[in-house]
């Protein structure tokens, strides 16, 4: 019971209070770049959840190995290479064996290699000293939080299309201000997880 409670707390923290995009500023590039339409936002975030979970599952044993050999300083290099190789591998496997999934997620995969959210989540798992279960829940939660932020923001941007925006604010500035307001709404979740589970 305690265990499940802890895991759910990690999941909810990652989705709501410590949202990856809106309070940790990880993965801002796709957040601003791919959120113009709802369907691309959903596709991109599904691919991110998938890669995050997979990357965590693969890097966890690798990190144990590195630490057992006292090679902790190689963490950054090894992680980024593993993620890059993993994304390539997933792309090839999906293309060959699950073409339906490939056509849905495939186009987003190369983008994810250099996405700081994926490398960020595996490094944070190590920094926080999470065990395997906690790492997996944290990664999936981070991915879901990314999806939540992307979908919400895509909705806001679709609304913004039809607005009369002052000329100097058009384009990027108004997008950032809108992101700021979406982020304010997430401030409302502060303390909610502690309140439920504390």
């Amino acid at each position: 019971m305690e265990l499940t409670k802890g895991l759910i707390a990690i999941l909810l923290t990652a989705i709501l209070t410590q949202n990856f995009v809106l309070s940790k500023f990880l993965g801002i590039c796709p957040f601003l770049g791919v959120s113009k339409k709802l369907n691309t936002a959903v596709g991109m975030s599904a691919a991110v959840i998938f890669v995050m979970a997979l990357a965590t599952a693969v890097t966890y044993p690798i990190n144990l190995f590195l630490e057992s050999k006292e090679l902790g300083y190689l963490q950054t290099i090894v992680f980024i290479l593993v993620i890059a190789a993993l994304v390539q591998l997933v792309e090839i496997i999906l293309k060959k064996y699950i073409p339906a999934l490939y056509s849905a997620l495939g186009i987003y995969l190369p983008l994810i290699t250099t996405n700081c959210a994926v490398l960020g989540v595996v490094i944070l798992n190590v920094d926080n000293g999470y065990n395997f279960g906690q790492s997996m829940f944290n990664s999936v939660g981070a991915g879901l939080g990314f999806m939540l932020a992307m979908v919400m923001f895509a909705g806001v941007r679709e609304r913004m299309e039809s607005c009369d925006i002052p000329k100097f604010m058009r384009g990027l500035p108004i997008t950032l201000v809108a992101a700021s307001l979406v982020s304010v709404s997430f401030l409302g979740f502060t303390g909610i997880v502690e309140h439920i589970f504390g």
Binding site: F25, F168, L172, L176, V177, S180, L187
Partner: peptide, 28 residues
């Protein structure tokens, strides 16, 4: 975090304004 987005947005607006007055394209 919201302040970060807001300040960055405002800074971009200022830079775009400056760029436009110099006849340079605005940052996309």
């Amino acid at each position: 975090p919201p302040g970060g987005f807001f300040v960055f947005g405002m800074l971009m607006a200022c830079v775009n304004k400056l760029a436009e007055s110099r006849g340079k394209p605005r940052a996309q």
